[in-house]
């Protein structure tokens, strides 16, 4: 019980309080110095979190393969891609300084392979995924963007003006679209966006306080 719940809660409480006080304390003070040390720990934890993520990804997908899940082929591709890319990336990255600085050919081999994977596989695949958005947005807009009420009509008209103002063809039709679009984004949108941001920030502060004070414990797992 102590190790599973009380100790993590205590660590969370002290780190949370320390981070808040450290953030607002003047530079050069003892608490600010330790706050910066805490930040360094966070960087280390973040690096380990990445390892944890990779480990978890392999575990979850490996289980699916062993249990003959219908997506097992994709799981296998994912694990193979991960391992191949990581091998070339790690060896190409650490090789020059850590293993054998006198052998540049081998270093170049790993580096080039990693760059090849990135340039000719990763980049086109990610760009393709993102480009598909244009198709889905068009389809979704056709089905969902209806002037069903007065508010929806205002939204529709505003969207049309902004859409025209954000592309050269809009200003070719009427130069005023750019100005109105800019005004909508920097005045009307800004007011709404700021209200949402402030509201969300207050909500996030409350949620963080609940975690720091131990009132919210779901992050420890279980109920």
């Amino acid at each position: 019980m102590f190790l599973r719940k009380t100790l993590p809660l205590l660590i969370c409480f002290f780190c949370g309080v320390f981070a808040i006080v450290g953030f607002f304390s003047a530079e050069g003070t003892a608490i600010n110095t330790y706050y910066e040390k805490l930040a360094k720990w966070n960087s280390i934890i973040a690096a380990f979190a990445m390892l944890l993520g990779v480990g978890n990804l392999i575990r979850v997908n490996f289980i699916k393969i062993t249990r003959n899940h219908h997506d097992k082929i994709y799981c296998a591709i994912l694990i193979a891609s991960l391992l191949i890319t990581a091998t070339f990336g790690i060896l190409g990255g650490v090789y020059p300084t850590k293993i054998d600085p006198a052998n540049p050919q081998l270093m170049d081999f790993f580096k080039n392979k990693c760059a090849y994977i990135f340039e000719y596989m990763m980049k086109p695949m990610q760009s393709t995924m993102f480009s598909l958005l244009a198709f889905f947005v068009a389809s979704a807009a056709f089905r969902a963007f209806r002037a069903k009420s007065f508010e929806a009509t205002i939204l529709l008209v505003t969207a049309f003006i902004v859409m025209l103002g954000r592309v050269p063809i809009g200003t070719s039709i009427w130069p005023g679209f750019a100005g109105i679009s800019e005004w909508i984004l920097s005045t009307v949108n800004m007011a709404g966006s700021r209200a949402i941001t402030l509201g969300a920030a207050v909500g996030a502060t409350a949620a963080c306080l609940k975690i720091i004070l131990g009132l919210e414990t779901r992050y420890l797992g279980g109920e």
Binding site: V137, A147, L156, M163
Partner: peptide, 24 residues
């Protein structure tokens, strides 16, 4: 690319108009 963006915006708008005319 800017031209492509313009045309895609126009097409999306045309489909929205068609959708709304149909709805109304």
């Amino acid at each position: 690319i800017a031209d492509v963006q313009s045309i895609v915006h126009l097409i999306i708008m045309i489909f929205i108009i068609i959708g709304n005319v149909t709805y109304l």
